[in-house]
Design a protein around this nucleic acid. Structure first.
Lengths: 353, 353
DNA sequence: ATTATTTACTTAAACGATTAAGTGAGGATA
DNA sequence: TATCCTCACTTAATCGTTTAAGTAAATAAT
């Protein structure tokens, strides 16, 4: 059982002290080292396959409390379904995590993922692992918010509307995205546009998107009607259900769904009711999930660059670690309409029948 | 800037030594502690909000080289598309990671995810972070295999066919799964069954599934024909292409696709060619991705329990950490056919036309 | 020629835990 | 009464780094 190679071994091999090894490896400007010594140390490092011990580094660096200690950033992603252990199943989370991890890695950080267990809160994990920062995705841990603040490390909330303007925030302008989608339909001649979403009760994403929908209508002088708002849950099934209800109302010519998964369900629902997409009914979704491209017809939707979200979140963390006095940031990732085949023009509704 | 609470603080508060604090918190049977002292220490821990410093624990525990040091297990997931930074985009990886993380957490471990960068190989990360184990998903790091062995920690390969029988293995019996799928079609009266897959050149998953396809045919006395094997890449697009080719051959009544994404593409391809699924063409896929349930018609497929895979992988790691002499394990997660609407019976092919 | 400065190191303390070895008090045993 | 345990602790070494402070030699300044 070979013991690990330590800086002491490198020092012995190179004929110097461990301090010199450290100075060479961290090339501090506070300490000059001769080129020959540098070369000797580097040779020894290569020869012995030395890799510094992060635990020792974390431990000793905890003295000067600025800079990153552990080079470890935690990511918390909520459970998508209560009681289920599938925390990262949401396809978004994979992409997000992917870019978070990549951005961390090229900056010399690593990512620790974790949910929370009854025995250990995330605040405890953060203390235990000396986390340099935390990214919290899609939730607001209200009960422990003061504990998080006490940690005194950069924290970024992603896709979270319940901000108390203490932590950094990264998200999309959902209201603007909904405006884009609705406006796109209006510009295609639609006036009776239904809105399908998950619950708009909480002041979250769905509520914001409802506001954007109203903004667009009002911007074009179209009256908003609660009759056209269908609110259930974010699911394929609800998309079908809502579409079947909407089919009853012959005036409606278009639908804005606040999630692609709802929109794809709606396509199925309208089909069942004998409507042709996009001839009889135009649909715009939100998110641009993989399925949007594969749907029949392919779905016009509001695309959010999830990769950019992750990148922005991690870059915020790292910037804040390096300059601890940085003010709170609020970053909004741009949204764009992706035009596909689920929307058609209406020039004159009366004549088209 | 409040300094972190250390065991020294707890000791002072409780009026004991740090050793006593450690003995209380780790309740070793080698050292007896009085109930009163135990209570005093526990009170101090609660009062001060003390959480042990993992870095210090890792460092000191590195002396006795058995047990886990860092309570950290690394997970490597390959890049799905070369050059892209989206390492976890594959929807499978989300589920897998989810159950890996959960299983780790309830056993007192944490999960570090990482790809590899030019500057730092995964072996270096493992040394640097004192990883207690590694789970490698879907690839075989042949160039560094000896480096991995030298790490002397439990390593589990998931979904990897290039094993040298040194590391643990967790996967599915792909050959058996393909057998199940093909046999299911045969039992529905089909004889001319096409096989669509990604590349079968490498001795990987696709090759195994081809063998299972042949097993089923030969088991029922049906001749295998290379004419019926369509090998391209694992994509929706290739599914369309293959289906269009298959449509030319009027004898073929069924298709086994080695991935749901191919199968869903094939459905689209057959539609384009004017065939009705499942009346004119039966299709069975593999994997049971989310899309399989949503397809039109919904896809009959071979389901693998990805959650079990992750659980098994992490349990192997943890078991092996606790008993380092454990022999190599080879775990196969059961596969099952999920019956949906993409397969129909053929009683007599000639009469049906 | 003497002193001051710079260069290129080394020494040693510290981070926060674990644990083998040591200690003193009290009870049991010879 | 002297010796030996056992109990319930404490002491101190250790893990592998970093870095302030120290040092000796070479060079520069006076």
């Amino acid at each position: 059982m070979a013991r690990r190679v330590s800086s002491r071994d490198v020092a012995r091999e190179a004929g110097v002290s461990t301090a010199t090894v450290s100075y060479v490896l961290n090339n501090k400007e506070s300490q000059t080292i001769s080129p020959e010594t540098t070369e000797k140390v580097l040779d020894a490092v290569r020869k012995l396959g030395y890799v510094p011990n992060q635990a020792a580094q974390t431990l000793v660096t905890s003295r000067q409390q600025n800079k990153g200690l552990s080079k470890l950033v935690g990511v918390i992603i909520p459970q998508t379904e209560p009681g289920k252990k599938f925390v990262f199943s949401n396809p978004f989370y994979g992409d997000l995590l992917s870019s978070v991890e990549y951005t961390a890695r090229i900056n010399g950080y690593h990512v620790l993922i974790s949910g929370t267990t009854a025995e250990q809160s995330y605040v405890e994990i953060a203390k235990n692992r000396s986390l340099d920062g935390i990214i919290i995705v899609g939730m607001y841990p209200s009960s422990q918010i003061n504990e998080y603040k006490k940690l005194q490390i950069p924290i970024v909330m992603v896709d979270c509307y319940r901000s108390d303007h203490f932590f950094h925030n990264v998200g999309v302008n959902d209201r603007h995205g909904a405006y884009l989608a609705t406006n796109y339909l209006i510009e295609h001649g639609h006036k009776n546009i239904a809105f399908i979403s998950g619950s708009v009760q909480d002041y979250g994403v769905n509520h914001e998107r409802l506001m954007g929908y109203r903004d667009a209508l009002e911007g074009k002088g179209i009256d908003y009607s609660e009759q056209l708002v269908f609110s259930g849950d974010v699911s394929y099934i609800y998309g079908i259900t809502a579409a079947e209800q909407i089919s009853q109302n012959k005036d409606i010519t278009a639908v804005f769904a606040t999630a692609d998964i709802i929109a794809v369900g709606a396509i199925k629902g309208f089909r069942k009711s004998g409507l042709n997409i996009p001839k009889d009914m135009s649909i715009v979704g939100f998110d641009d999930i993989h399925l949007a491209r594969l749907a029949e017809p392919s779905l016009t939707t509001v695309r959010q660059d999830i990769s950019k979200k992750g990148e922005a979140a991690m870059e915020l963390i790292i910037t804040n670690i390096l300059s601890p006095v940085m003010p709170r940031q609020d970053i909004s990732i741009p949204l764009t309409i992706v035009e596909r085949d689920s929307v058609s023009y209406i020039t004159n509704t009366d004549l088209s029948l």
